[in-house]
Amino acid sequence: MYAQMVKTEAKRVRSLDEMEPQERAFQQRIDAGQKIEPKEWMPEDYRKTLIRQISQHAHSEIVGQLPEGNWITRAPTLERKAILLAKVQDEAGHGLYLYCAAETLGISRDQMYEQLHSGKAKYSSIFNYPTLSWADIGAIGWLVDGAAIMNQVPLQRCSYGPYARAMVRICKEESFHQRQGFDIMTVLSKGTPEQKAMAQDALDRWWWPSLMMFGPSDDASVHSAQSMAWNIKQDSNDELRQKFVDQTVPQATYLGLTVPDPALKWNEAKGGHDFGEPDWTEFFAVIAGEGPCNRERLEARRKAWNDGAWFRDGLTAHAGKQAARRQASRIAAE
């Protein structure tokens, strides 16, 4: 997921009876499916958790530009180039919407960048894997965006108004992303033997990291329980992962590709697939900064930010000068 293992301060989820009247009223509104809006009262932990979750989601979008951005200049046709550029541009837009949503909670975008650049804030583990071939662009759209959509669709109904509205916009724009990825995979898997091998190799490398996107099982997690009580998380990690596998496996079959999991098989009794366990040691290492591309990704973000300081300052200075000039001519006219 684009926001993984978001922590709350909760030790356990309290019942309505245990809450003070203000918080009880707040929780009852959420239970009734109402939206919480920026200036309304909210528990401090709700606010902080949302900042963590939304900013992590935003960081994932802009760091997520990098692995795919890698291939914009190498896209194999003019149309593919335009489509990929439009997609990566959308991710910048989604990051922008999400940062704005988080800003309504009392943190600035620059502060969030600072947290990203210092390594304090996390972003999705998935973007720390390299894009080694053109098929990786297909696999990311198909698998990574496919996984993200599973989580983002229900978030359109989450309890925090600005976040929910940002997700509505994002989901609307994002629907072409998964399709473009699958389209690339389709062409490759029906192409030359080299192209098909390229597609299989991409699936082999992206399958497990995609399953890890949902995070480890959180059935026992108090943070997840609290987030669900607040309606800023709707499904458990395992539920989403199951849904993702069940949706994706037939698509892989259609492509004539093999999902790299020997344990994968249909379980008639449960009406879903059984599948193997991702390597959580690898997941935690990637989260801790030890993935194949963590350093490159953060370095690229820091460089863009630092190299752009003069530009942002130049525009600020000009806006100040213009305002002063207008003020002066207004005074002169009076």
Binding site: D183, T186, P250
Partner: peptide
């Protein structure tokens, strides 16, 4: 047009995307 999901054909066998 490619910004709109209908630009891409999704084969029936594949299901919802």
């Amino acid at each position: 047009v490619y910004r709109h999901p209908t630009f891409f054909d999704v084969p029936d066998e594949v299901g919802h995307m």
